[in-house]
Design a protein around this nucleic acid. Structure first.
Lengths: 140, 140
DNA sequence: CAGCATCCGGGCAGATACTG
DNA sequence: CAGTATCTGCCCGGATGCTG
């Protein structure tokens, strides 16, 4: 909604400022960012919950990811000055808007990662995309 | 279509195998991959055209990206054994299906990258997500 | 034209130890 | 519980030089 001013079809060259793609990729293209946003789609969660919900993540990466997301206004951080410290993270509207893209990505992954893995395995056998590729002879 | 068996809503924990997300992120989460797929959405293109269409890309990255995409069955590579060598790359159906996700991502980027940059600048001033964050005092 | 091989610097990201 | 700080290895990614 309210977006595709550019791209979205046949486009030979990028609008010279493909930098904003880099911007977004540096953010949502990150594995941990996607997982974090997806996890936060459930609603407000605290630090330890996030760490528990995202299997392989380290404190460093979780903290860093959360900070970046907060900096960019994708999530909010609420710290309660209690005796047992408690900090809750929640998606902002902007963060939720990003969820659409993330969901599309995750959806594609869920739907096609099998195919990809299959093609990958097949390529290993045939040697496609690996070393010298077979040349399709054609009229010259 | 035919995808969201999981996620797509309130999900506390990832299905233990968030590995497939890593899979997809390692692929389309890459800046050059996104740009390459987006560029190939125009149709069949040759190596030099791709390099010209993607401003900052190096031969190394272009070649690497193309190989990975070919390995995964997202694009096809057709080499013509002519005197002036010519190689054309084209998206497969699988590659085109990925375009939806990529488009969503790019669309979000185009629509909100301004907001993100804005929030980012504002955070720099207030110190949010940077060093010590202000603690919101609350009832215990 | 369409690649490949190599060197090399920078930042990403894990493990570990410590703090409020 | 919710982080911070540091050390370090690894891989990304650019620049260069060479081939078919």
């Amino acid at each position: 909604m309210a977006s595709e001013r550019r791209i979205a079809g046949p486009c030979q060259a990028w609008p010279e400022d493909s930098a904003f793609i880099r911007e977004v990729l540096d953010r949502i293209g990150d594995k941990w960012t996607v997982l974090t946003i997806g996890t936060l789609s459930a609603g407000s969660l605290r630090y330890s919950d996030l760490q528990a919900s995202i299997p392989g993540i380290s404190q460093r990466m979780l903290t860093q990811t959360l900070k970046h997301l907060e900096r960019d206004g994708l999530i909010t951080r609420t710290a309660y000055a209690e005796v047992p410290p408690r900090v809750e993270y929640e998606l902002t509207d902007l963060g939720r808007s990003l969820m659409d893209a993330v969901t599309a990505m995750v959806g594609w992954a869920a739907a096609h990662h099998r195919e990809v893995a299959d093609n990958r395995a097949a390529s290993e056998l045939t040697g496609v995309g690996r070393g010298k590729a077979a040349v399709s002879a054609s009229a010259g």
